[in-house]
């Protein structure tokens, strides 16, 4: 079986991985911008600690 055929059979994994990476980058940017607007200052490196008082 050729590499191309094997890749075709495994393409769903690549497509899903790609969608997750793109979606992750978009969501993080949107959420960071929203937090920045709400807080009125830049979001720290670990944005979670900015919104979760337990940290």
């Amino acid at each position: 079986m050729s590499f191309r055929e094997n890749l075709r059979r495994g393409r769903s994994h690549l497509i899903i991985a790609l969608i997750m990476i793109v979606a992750g980058v978009i969501i993080v940017n949107i959420e960071d911008r929203t937090l920045q607007e709400e807080a009125g200052k830049p979001v720290p490196d670990h944005a979670f600690s900015a919104v979760n008082p337990q940290d």
Partner: peptide, 28 residues
Amino acid sequence: GTYTGDFFAHALPFLVLNELAFMMGTWG
């Protein structure tokens, strides 16, 4: 808690590696 960088920094490597690993684990 939130869908910010911290969440994706932990979730994405796992989810992406999971897809790539099982693509190779079930190659063919």
